[in-house]
């Protein structure tokens, strides 16, 4: 291919003018490229994952040592950012436990105390504020959440013409959010709680689109929590501070409930409308409620099999009628 040596591309004539022009264009191009990337200079160094963080395994693949290192990384970050020493743990589910929530619509007064107790307990971002619980003010004559008022603002609740329906993650037995996640960053634990590995989520928000209860939230920006409001009792899968760009959701306060306590939303409820417990224990309050009260789930037609039940105070007249319902709902699972 000797002739190609004469070819202008193979041996371009580098006269001074074209050399200068070419050099200038390349320099201008590079300059423009660097200028375009300039905002990256303002990147918070904490946002850039460390090598260990980058290589961290999926929650289910971590052994004890990996988990210890991961928890230490979380603690270090909290300490660096808020200057407090947190107690970060990995709280595992107990055998023979399946958590269920029951909410008494005859009692709820719509005070939204649960909404705020949840934010305080779970270290949600305050700005922009992320809330897991949405209380709907329902008009007479419907149970359809789409008819509810999200923004009711009254000096005094409850209003005589309404009832109140708080909605949060239903911890479905057939969760659409888990099915759609492309990287298995969200899954259902053996005790029925659907969790997110905040260090695995890629932030595609497909789960958010899939949830029929609008129960998932995305960190559109770096979550902000004032130091004095930070809850230092933290767990890997629940209330540790989340990075920006990942999903989060209600975890039934698993760092509390797996250690025998009640969720924060239940504890704060002034009228006792919220009940929580192990449905596999027939003596538990929730098991009794499911057996005896008039219970329903939201959007049953979605086939999601929620572990979050609504009920009214009225009981079935005699106990004979009740077990049939309990048996049926167990069977339909």
């Amino acid at each position: 291919m000797s002739e190609s040596n004469n070819n202008p591309i193979e041996a371009p004539e580098l006269d001074r003018r074209s050399f200068l022009r070419g050099g200038l264009s390349v320099a201008a191009g590079m300059g423009a490229f660097v200028a375009a990337l300039k905002p990256l200079a303002d990147m918070d160094p904490n946002d850039i994952p460390s090598l260990d963080g980058f290589l961290q395994k999926h929650y289910k693949e971590m052994d004890e040592e990996d988990m210890e290192a991961a928890l230490k990384r979380i603690a270090d970050k909290v300490q660096a950012r808020w200057d407090v020493v947190p107690n970060v743990r990995d709280v595992r589910p107990e055998e023979g436990v399946e958590f269920v929530y029951a909410l008494n619509l005859s009692r709820c007064v719509g005070c939204r105390k649960c909404v705020h107790a949840c934010v305080d307990e779970n270290n949600q971002s305050r700005s922009p504020e992320i809330q897991y619980i949405r209380v709907l003010e329902m008009p007479r004559g419907t149970l359809d959440p789409e008819k509810g008022n999200h923004d009711y603002d009254r000096p005094k609740v409850p209003s005589d013409d309404h009832f109140y329906m708080p909605v949060q993650c239903h911890q479905c037995e057939n969760p659409p959010c888990v099915k759609v996640c492309p990287v298995e960053a969200t899954w259902t634990e053996p005790d029925g709680i659907t969790v997110v590995d905040y260090d695995w989520c890629i932030g595609c928000r497909y789960c958010e689109a899939a949830c029929p209860y609008w129960a998932r939230r995305f960190n559109f920006t770096e979550p902000e929590i004032p130091k004095e409001e930070l809850n230092t009792d933290m767990a890997y899968l629940s209330n540790r501070p989340r990075p920006k760009g990942v999903m989060e959701k209600c975890t039934f306060c698993l760092h509390r409930t797996r250690e025998g306590k009640n969720p924060a939303c239940l504890e704060v409820c002034p009228v006792g409308a919220r009940k929580f417990g192990n449905v596999l224990d027939p003596q538990s309050e929730v098991a009794q409620i499911l057996r005896t009260k008039r219970v329903f789930v939201l959007k049953e037609e979605q086939g999601t099999l929620p572990r979050f039940f609504y009920y009214f105070d009225e009981r079935y007249p005699d106990k004979a009628a009740a077990p049939a319902l309990g048996a049926e709902s167990e069977e339909s699972r």
């Binding site: 759609v180 497909y206 990942v246």
Partner: peptide, 27 residues
């Protein structure tokens, strides 16, 4: 377009490590 929509593009390698196939239509 998919990349710019991701909250954590730095984690795209997770697709190769735990790929929810055939469950997720995104996979």
């Amino acid at each position: 377009f998919v990349t710019v929509d991701l909250g954590r593009p730095d984690r795209f390698l997770h697709l190769f490590q735990r790929f929810n196939f055939p469950g997720s239509m995104l996979a």
